[in-house]
């Protein structure tokens, strides 16, 4: 019986170690959000071109992450890209005439959505649509424009 007790103690230590490892991985290593899910509200915006924007990309206000992109789809009426984003409930004082633009972090970094607050009294809430948008800078189009100007000036 003493041997069995020793075995059980060791198995207990083993299981405890793996649980510690799991919580270390969950909270320190990964962005585990199952337990610390904060309340958010969803807004959307129409863009002419989203470039390389992906879901889960951050939404930033003055460089601070205030939300995430949850879905990207094509609007069936205007054939523009509709970007849905969740904003933390903490930031519920954003004016309704704020504008969003798709920006790139660094020269080769990931794309994110930057929000510029407007001055309206009304605030964004669940289901609002942001009217003023600025599309992503697409390098190929810039080069195209440059070439057109270059040939015109000749």
């Amino acid at each position: 019986m003493r041997k069995q007790t020793k075995v059980e103690i060791w198995v207990g230590i083993f299981v405890l170690m793996s649980l510690l490892a799991l919580s270390y991985i969950a909270f320190q290593v990964s962005n585990f959000s199952g337990w610390k899910e904060r309340p958010t509200y969803e807004v959307s915006a129409l863009f002419d071109n989203i470039g390389g924007l992906k879901t889960r990309a951050p939404l930033k206000l003055s460089g601070v992450v205030i939300g995430r992109i949850t879905a990207i789809e094509i609007d069936p009426v205007s054939f523009k890209a509709r970007v849905h984003m969740n904003i933390d409930q903490e930031f519920n004082q954003l004016p309704v005439d704020s504008s969003v633009s798709i920006l790139t972090s660094g020269l080769l970094g990931d794309q994110y959505v930057g929000l510029d607050p407007g001055g309206d009294e009304e605030v964004l809430e669940q289901g609002s649509e942001i009217e003023m948008t600025q599309s992503a800078m697409v390098l190929e189009e810039l080069i195209g424009q440059f070439l057109v100007k270059f040939s015109e000036s000749d």
């Binding site: 170690m17 793996s18 490892a21 270390y24």
Partner: peptide
Amino acid sequence: IALPLLVLIFNALGV
């Protein structure tokens, strides 16, 4: 049962 637990410990120590 044992292998996933060992892999968890492996990952945590690797990090």
